[in-house]
Amino acid sequence: MPERVLCQSQDLLERGLAQRFTLQWGGRERSAFVFRYDGGVYAYINECAHIPIELDFNPGDFFDYSHSWLVCSTHGAYYAPNTGLCLGGPCSGRKLISLPVREYANQVYLIEEQHE
């Protein structure tokens, strides 16, 4: 599968600001983000599972004040960073859309798949 460089590894600080990017998904361009959590790298489509609006009010700022959960700045829904599962708020039990990423050679890559 083809891969696309999203950022350098050092751009993702543990539980810090995420890097935003766009991709084609479902026949249209979508916003997405990649971040580091507990040493792993994760990426999701940037849409709340409650209503499809972007999670971050300030670009790249997805974590709550404790840096433990991803949070929707509009609805207050909070998500487990490593699974995307909503643990509280109006969409409890639903999930963010996960994207396949991997890290090697000091870079973070999106594994590009067809998402029609």
Rank of each mutant, 00 (worst) to 15 (best):
I111F: 09
V108E: 01
G89R: 01
N82H: 14
W69N: 07
L55T: 11
F62P: 02
Q8V: 12
G40F: 01
G40L: 03
P52F: 05
L96E: 03
E112W: 05
R20K: 15
A77K: 01
G93F: 07
S31E: 13
A49H: 06
S68R: 15
P2N: 13
D61S: 13
L99C: 05
Y44E: 06
V101I: 07
S98H: 12
F35L: 13
S73I: 09
A77S: 15
G93K: 06
L13A: 14
L12S: 05
M1S: 14
W25M: 03
T74N: 11
S68A: 12
S31M: 12
G40C: 02
F62G: 00
N58H: 14
T83P: 00
D61F: 01
A105R: 10
D56M: 02
S73Q: 12
Y78N: 05
S73M: 14
F21G: 05
P81F: 10
L17A: 12
I97R: 01
T83K: 00
Y79G: 01
V108S: 00
E113G: 10
P90N: 11
G76S: 08
Y42I: 12
L17Y: 12
N82T: 04
E112Y: 08
Y42F: 15
L96W: 05
D11M: 01
D38K: 12
C86E: 01
T83Y: 00
F57I: 10
T22Q: 15
E29T: 15
Q19S: 10
L13Y: 11
E112A: 03
D11P: 01
R4H: 09
V41E: 01
Q24D: 15
I97T: 14
S68M: 07
N46A: 11
Q114A: 14
G84N: 02
G39N: 03
F63M: 03
K95T: 11
I45A: 03
E29V: 10
Q107S: 11
F57H: 13
S73W: 09
Y42C: 05
G39Y: 05
S66Y: 10
A18V: 08
G84T: 03
R94V: 00
V5N: 09
A105V: 07
K95E: 09
E103I: 11
P100T: 11
A80V: 10
R36W: 02
H50T: 09
S98R: 14
Y65D: 15
S9V: 12
G76L: 04
G39V: 10
E103N: 07
A43W: 00
L12I: 10
S73C: 14
K95P: 00
V108P: 00
D56Q: 09
D38L: 13
S9H: 09
L70C: 03
Y37H: 13
G39R: 02
P52A: 12
C91R: 03
H115R: 07
E14Q: 15
G27C: 08
E54S: 12
G26A: 04
G40T: 08
Q107P: 00
L87I: 10
